[in-house]
């Protein structure tokens, strides 16, 4: 299929070991929104031609046709998006952990791994959305039977697309909706020659989204500074003692909120369980225990924080008093008003 220069095909496979949560997040994004990308609503940005099973008009073989075309090398430039972790199909004598469609010749399902093997070498760029696809995530938890892993574990961390682009990881369980569409937008801009190579860190995350910790963007950070720690859920104070990992987790949820500027994690009363991180979930469990590292830091900040807080309250109390002259003057006897003198 010869696609036009002003559009880019996205082949989106949800058939990793996942939950479809990234596709649902895609429908929730507003900056930009899915329809802005699909309808070509942003200036200079190629239109996104999306083939995703949740949103497709077509069914079955008709839906799979562009995936087969791309595998045959008939789509010049496409972005492959993988959702869900990649199982180890070799850890059992036969059978499948994850498959996507059926081979109409043999009647056997086509495994997700087969699709990755066919499509990744031909893709202009490959994106792993969600922590499962990026690093393995919840389904790669200790004791899992599928031996699943992230896409970079499967393809290799040094893997490059034929356009020289590394795997792009957009972690999160699920990913922040706008992080997802904004990363796609960057790639569309790069494809149009309007942006340099997408900047990624050593875990293949877009740097501008993941260089800061959740704590650095948390609206409860001030409570931490003053050593005001919530002792029970529902407290508006810093909840690090209740299990929040925000101080060490790379995530922009504090700044971006969840959706439309609303919601999030620690900033609205939910502990950060580290869902964007490569070691999620194992190194954060049990989730409701205080992170061991914060035992020391929250203790260390206590002396300074309490002192600063006390001084601030003193200043604050003063600032809460209007200057003394802002008041109605008492009625005075005629001739005694100084202004009339």
């Amino acid at each position: 299929m010869a696609e036009s220069a002003d559009e880019i095909v996205v082949l989106w496979i949800t058939a990793g070991l996942g939950c479809d949560g990234e596709t649902i997040a895609l429908t929730g994004a507003t900056q930009p929104s899915l329809e802005e990308l699909i309808l070509g609503g942003l200036p200079g940005i190629p239109r996104l031609v999306l083939h995703n099973p949740l949103l497709a008009y077509e069914v079955g073989e008709e839906f799979l046709a562009p995936f087969h075309r791309a595998a045959r090398g008939e789509i010049d430039r496409f972005i492959l998006v993988i959702e869900g972790s990649i199982p180890d199909e070799t850890n059992k004598p036969e059978g499948y952990w994850a498959a996507f469609g059926v081979d109409q010749q043999t009647g056997q399902p086509i495994t997700t791994c087969e699709w990755i093997d066919r499509l990744a070498p031909k893709a202009w760029a490959v994106v792993a959305v969600g922590t499962c696809a990026a690093y393995g995530g919840i389904h790669a938890m200790e004791g899992n039977p599928t031996g699943c892993m992230g896409l970079a574990d499967y393809l290799g961390w040094d893997w490059r697309s034929r356009a020289g682009i590394p795997i792009v990881n957009v972690p999160g369980c699920p990913t922040l909706p706008d992080n997802l569409t904004e990363t796609l937008l960057y790639l569309l801009r790069q494809a149009a020659g309007l942006a340099p190579m997408i900047p990624l860190d050593d875990q293949l995350r877009p740097t501008w989204l993941f260089e800061q910790t959740a704590h650095e963007g948390c609206n409860r950070g001030g409570y931490y500074e003053q050593a005001e720690f919530g002792e029970e859920y529902g407290s508006p104070k810093c909840i690090v003692k209740l299990g929040c990992w925000g101080p060490v987790v790379q995530c922009n949820v504090g700044r971006r909120s969840w959706l439309g500027g609303v919601g999030g994690c620690a900033n609205v009363g939910g502990i950060c369980i580290g869902c964007t991180m490569p070691s999620f979930p194992d190194k954060f469990m049990p989730f409701m225990n205080q992170p061991p590292g914060s035992l020391l830091s929250s203790h260390a900040v206590a002396t300074y924080g309490r002192a600063v807080h006390a001084l601030r309250r003193f200043t604050q109390a003063s600032l809460n008093k209007e200057p003394s002259w802002r008041q109605k003057k008492p009625v005075q006897a005629a001739g005694s008003d100084s202004r009339n003198r």
Binding site: G21, I24, A25, G28, C173, P174, Y233, G234, S235, I239, L242, V253, S257, W258, L259, V262, G263, G264, C265, V268, G269, G270, I271, C272, I273, C275, M288
Partner: peptide, 20 residues
């Protein structure tokens, strides 16, 4: 998200109530 923090995997739900 106002009530449960994040969609679709909530952040503010706990046994015993909510952190909202």
């Amino acid at each position: 998200c106002l009530m449960e923090g994040r969609h679709v995997h909530p952040s503010t739900l706990y046994p015993g109530g909510v952190g909202t």
